[in-house]
Design a protein around this nucleic acid. Structure first.
Lengths: 173, 173
DNA sequence: GGGGCTTGGTTCAAGTTTGAAACAAACCTA
DNA sequence: TAGGTTTGTTTCAAACTTGAACCAAGCCCC
């Protein structure tokens, strides 16, 4: 079967995409490392916890939300725990499970660094986009993300009804 | 000074962006690791070399093109060299410099894995975009990339006229 | 109620990335 | 042309990521 190469337009889009995403991630990582002493992913973990009732999530749910592997998450949470920004508890209704809880200090760090972070996001991304482009970007990314989340190679927890149990009856704990 | 938070629309776009870019990078990395035994970045390095006269570039130029740090590139090229896909030569007209050259085997590996790679790019990104969205994506990313390349914190070689010397008189060597 | 499969999470080794030195060659400039 | 600065690249240690085991605890079903 002969390959269906990218069209010139797709080529251009792909290269621009690669450059842009790398540069944006880089800018954000650098800023957070500087100002909050942690890479972007770790900040996202805190942010995700902060947005959820009781500020806690099971490891798998957290991995699902942040789109990373469980093993990567384990490492990250261990580090955050050492820094006192997160605490691990074991899940009361499933003895296999453990739950990451945002500590007060974690919340404090998050609040302290949020403004700088938001500004960097703005400076590196939104500052260069028109209002229309923001909408286009959302549409594009939502579509792509939805498609890839659903795909088989990356079993997505809450695509499968009987696995959906993210924030249980009254928030796992 | 009070923070200018993201608008709800920007929030949505940002989250979708994070998810999409992570998932796409992941899919591509996984596929290339499987089929070519190297992460995406390493493939990009080979690809960049292959597109240039004499299939060679100075380290700094290569770093510039791939948007990575010189130190990261050094590591990557060392690995690729061990695998015999790239060869290092020293630059003839600047004794400080070294040049990465794509070997025949490197070219072979590249050609062999290109079809699978293209297909993955298509499946993970372009398959979910309309023709219009491809154009929008290009416009968005080009703008962002251009803005971030130019910005001070990441001194971009060929913004500064007297540093522009990428592929010299007849391709460095 | 004891296998056998699945799920939630961690562990471990190997590979990669980071950022701050370290170095050497090139480029001033007095 | 000696001395100081800049540029091109590498090195090193510490941090992070990957993927393949591994180990429990739940689940199923006869």
């Amino acid at each position: 079967m002969t390959t269906r190469w990218l069209t010139p337009g797709e080529q251009r889009a792909w290269r621009a995409y690669l450059a842009a995403t790398l540069l944006v991630e880089d800018a954000i990582d650098r800023q957070l490392q500087q100002d909050a002493g942690m890479p972007h992913l770790y900040y996202s973990i805190l942010a995700n916890l902060s947005e959820v009732p009781e500020q806690q999530l099971r490891m798998t749910d957290l991995a699902e939300r942040t789109k990373i592997t469980r093993s990567r998450l384990t490492y990250a949470v261990t580090r955050l725990e050492k820094d006192g920004l997160v605490r691990r508890e074991n899940c009361r209704w499933d003895k296999r499970g453990s739950v990451a809880v945002l500590t007060d200090e974690g919340r404090a760090v998050l609040e302290r660094s949020a403004p700088g972070h938001v500004e960097t996001v703005r400076n590196s991304l939104f500052a260069h986009l028109s209002a229309e482009q923001v909408e286009q970007l959302e549409a594009i990314c939502t579509g792509v993300a939805r498609a890839l989340e659903a795909d088989g190679t990356r079993p997505a927890a809450d695509e499968v009804p009987w696995r959906r149990r993210s924030t249980p009856p009254s928030s796992c704990s």
